[in-house]
Design a binder for these strands. Structure first.
Lengths: 338, 338
DNA sequence: ACTTGGCACTCCGGCACGAAGAGTGCCAGA
DNA sequence: TCTGGCACTCTTCGTGCCGGAGTGCCAAGT
């Protein structure tokens, strides 16, 4: 077990390194933080911390830098979440309240988060797995051609064209529309399949083929919509990554272009609260020198999607976590209002 | 006027510099291209070209590199558009044909273009200014709440909620829907306002308020939709920009995040055919060391939107232009089919 | 009037060398 | 267990030097 002071030394190292981006030595530490011990003592502590794998030296006789394990300990035990100042909070709220539709909310959120954290922001569109159906509409565009429109409680609208196997009458269509809505409105997506399963039985055999097609399309839309989309922003902040950085930035940009990777990244974080993935804790190889801070957000009590930032492992964790948490909270509010 | 051989020298310089990224000297030139003159002669030509501002030296007694003006001449007079190989063409077609909807078409196009040119690709969604209305639908969701759905011939669907000043009957709604469609279907967006102007007169005074609201929303949707969206990809290719590049890449990433900038960039190119903007020809400051190759594409004879790539001024113009043109052509075909 | 070879000059890039600085490990003493 | 001191290690700069590549110009050749 590490003594209290050693933890304090680790904290100081992390803080200094985050600030200066340079390996930090024993002397500088005792000066900048008022540890009440001499450099020599700190050196002993550092040796112990290095032994345990919390810090490392880039080369012999250089200062120490935290390892992934060191950051992990820092985040778990040594650092809190730094709350935002109230002007910041007000700015967030004002900025988000100007949004006119869902796309706009997500767009503003991603810009806000990027600006606040000065890192790359990733915002997932509200997922539909937890969403409910607000309305289903069927339109006859032509005798054997329908349009299906699905409206969700998160404000998203999806539409699909349907080519029917046989023409369908207006009255039948109206009947179908009414029955469909009475069954599924207000229900969760996951419930819909079982709720509409026996619907064709209420209709003439002639129309069943068409109705099957319509239902199939509806279910398909629900499934497809669950494949979440996301928006990213603030990639210009990658240039602040490090001095070496063509090599660093490249794989990150590549990873960011692959939505699949990002979705997995956000999705893997099982904790309903905030999750911090540090360096190699990220599965994706290109992100092994980055950390991901993510959190769920939602309109009600449940999270409907996630948002987060991607930055260098050497980041200001308390500040970033504070910003991420605050933004998530306000976005949730905005979504609940609309 | 520059002699034939001097133009040849300029072409050789551009080609070599694009290949090697290093200033090119007289000796190397005579070796790699079989100019039938000695290095000394080439030196004289180079001095003349430099005098005219087509090439420059980074420092005294280094090789020459082309200036923006030099690239301009190269593109205008010295280089053609390099057609793609037929395997490439086939690959493009196959890749694009797999697309299932408009988003997918644009997404695939952007990835394709980025891969083909190894640069940053920008694809504008098909614009609606030239588009026509395929269908307008009105749904009564609640007594005083409607949904307007607009379907365009490019396959885009937009919807808006409408809160009516007064409840509206089903029959009136059906009447409105029918009249609206008979007037605007097949018409261009720009024509719609004048076509629906006198529509309220055909209805009872009680309903006119609501109908005005509906029409206003429709027109608003048309206008808003004309604000084009776009998709970008291949930002990881920015890492191949140059050795210096934190300074180069930063403003480019920033510019790419501002859709407004990009839209202006694409929009400014008035030429219906291919446009090449070289270095400082771009208005935006951050892009002064990049070139933009853009071209319109469309489903029929008319361009409905643009696509292009952003890369270093030192790029393979013939190849890039060939790829951009080919992709635009195939996307046009795909759009026409759907 | 061009073209060519020769020559002197310039400048960048790489390398070795040395000095300075920062940091470490370890040891002996408090 | 902490502290001060000391020797050692490594990186980082700055300097000086050299080779190579390229230029400009001039005088001679076609």
């Amino acid at each position: 077990m590490l003594s209290e002071r050693r933890l304090e030394v680790l904290r100081a190292i992390v803080q200094d390194y985050v600030g200066t981006e340079e390996p930090v030595g024993s002397k500088a530490l005792t000066e900048r933080h008022n540890l009440k011990v001499s450099p020599a003592t700190v050196r002993n502590d550092m040796a112990a911390l290095e032994e345990e794998g919390y810090i490392a030296q880039p080369h012999t006789s250089a200062g120490r830098i935290p390892t992934d394990k060191g950051y992990r300990l820092f985040v778990d035990k040594l650092a809190g979440v730094k709350p935002l100042s109230s002007p910041e909070r007000r700015a967030i709220q004002n900025f988000l309240e100007g949004a006119v539709d869902l796309d706009d909310v997500v767009g503003r959120t991603v810009r806000l988060l990027a600006q606040l954290t000065r890192q790359v922001a990733v915002v997932q569109y509200p997922s539909l797995t937890r969403s409910t159906v607000r309305h289903v509409e069927l339109l006859g565009l032509a005798p054997a051609r329908l349009m299906l429109v699905l409206i969700t409680d998160t404000g998203r609208v999806e539409q699909r064209m349907i080519d029917c196997p046989a023409p369908i009458g207006e009255t039948v269509l109206a009947d179908l529309r009414a029955r469909l809505n009475s069954r599924v409105v207000g229900e969760r997506f996951t419930e819909v399949p079982s709720l509409v399963q026996d619907l064709p039985e209420a209709f003439d055999a002639d129309d069943r083929g068409t109705i099957q097609t319509v239902l199939a399309t509806l279910l398909e839309t629900l499934v497809e919509e669950t494949e979440e989309r996301l928006m990213i922003g603030g990639t210009a902040n990658l240039t602040r990554f490090g001095h070496d950085f063509p090599l660093t930035i490249r794989p990150v940009l590549e990873a960011l272009e692959e939505q699949v990777v990002l979705l997995k990244l956000l999705g893997e974080a099982k904790d309903p609260g905030m999750t911090v993935r540090i360096g190699h804790e990220n599965q994706h190889e290109g992100l092994s020198s980055t950390s991901v801070v993510s959190v769920g957000y939602g309109s009600g009590d449940e999270a409907v999607a996630k948002l987060g930032v991607v930055g260098p492992t050497r980041m200001d964790y308390p500040g970033t976590m504070g910003a991420v948490r605050a933004v998530a909270r306000y976005v949730g509010q905005i979504l609940a209002e609309s």
